[in-house]
């Protein structure tokens, strides 16, 4: 059987080093298969987070040769195997051990975003009517598997560590899903501008490029939200209109 070399970052709390593992590879293998084989045969205590192994849960995010990817959806056949495949944990989050990072920040930030608040039901039986076209737009955002690869690649978090001032692409997608939900009545524009720091995004689209679900994060979520912020805060006519409508 052919083999390949995997250069895996081993360490705890940010201190560690790369270690090379040579393992057998076979047809159709993905990076996570190789990591599992190494864990089972050579490094029982290797830390790796995973669940579904089918690109649906977003647990096995890591950096493969420097690219933020899901390990379960990265085929070995898509990588150069004449050199070591470099695996390291996501850089935007504190390291726990080996390939596992502490992503709890994302969960805390989400909690602070105003929850879904539906309008009154449309029908007497307490149900709503929505057209598929209106649902489509938000369904795109709700495909998000919370892998946090967009957060990992975003330079505002990755290079500048502005976690206290900017919620990152994932949570802007989450906010967009709420704001554009056909039933939602809440207004999150003020928070978007202030605490959530949407202004920090300078639409370089790095997040869109790494999204394993193909969500057009920048074009469909962030830019429309930026427009809402501009409309609400800087367009006096719009502002007047909104006041009158209330």
């Amino acid at each position: 059987m052919p083999t390949a070399t995997f250069r895996i970052w081993r360490g705890q709390n940010g201190k560690g080093e790369f270690q090379d593992y040579v393992t057998e590879i076979s047809d159709g293998m993905v990076v996570l298969d190789a990591v599992h084989r190494i864990q089972a045969e050579q490094a029982n205590d290797l830390a790796v987070r995973w669940n579904c192994k089918a690109g649906k849960c977003g647990s096995c995010s890591a950096e493969i040769n420097g690219n933020p990817r899901l390990m379960c959806m990265t085929r070995l056949s898509s990588l150069r195997l004449d050199q070591a495949v470099v695996l390291q944990p996501m850089k935007s989050f504190p390291s726990i051990k080996d390939l596992v990072t502490d992503v709890s920040w994302n969960f805390r930030v989400k909690k602070a975003i105003k929850p879904f608040k539906p309008r009154r039901p449309d029908a007497a039986d307490g149900t709503w009517r929505m057209a598929q076209e209106d649902v489509d737009r938000v369904q795109e955002f709700r495909k998000c598997i919370e892998c946090f690869l967009c957060q990992d690649v975003c330079h505002v978090l990755r290079e500048h560590s502005l976690h206290d001032h900017f919620v990152g692409p994932r949570l802007l997608v989450y906010t967009a899903a709420l704001e554009m939900h056909p039933l939602d009545n809440e207004n999150r524009v003020n928070e978007l501008r202030n605490g959530n720091g949407i202004g920090y995004c300078n639409i370089t689209k790095c997040c869109t490029k790494v999204c394993p679900e193909g969500i057009r994060i920048t074009d469909n979520a962030i830019i429309p939200l930026k427009e809402r912020v501009v409309d609400e805060h800087f367009d006096p006519l719009q502002k007047l209109f909104r006041i009158l409508r209330k």
Partner: peptide
Amino acid sequence: GVVGNREYNGGW
């Protein structure tokens, strides 16, 4: 048996 320490240890 397992190697390593108690922190995020898949073998354990």
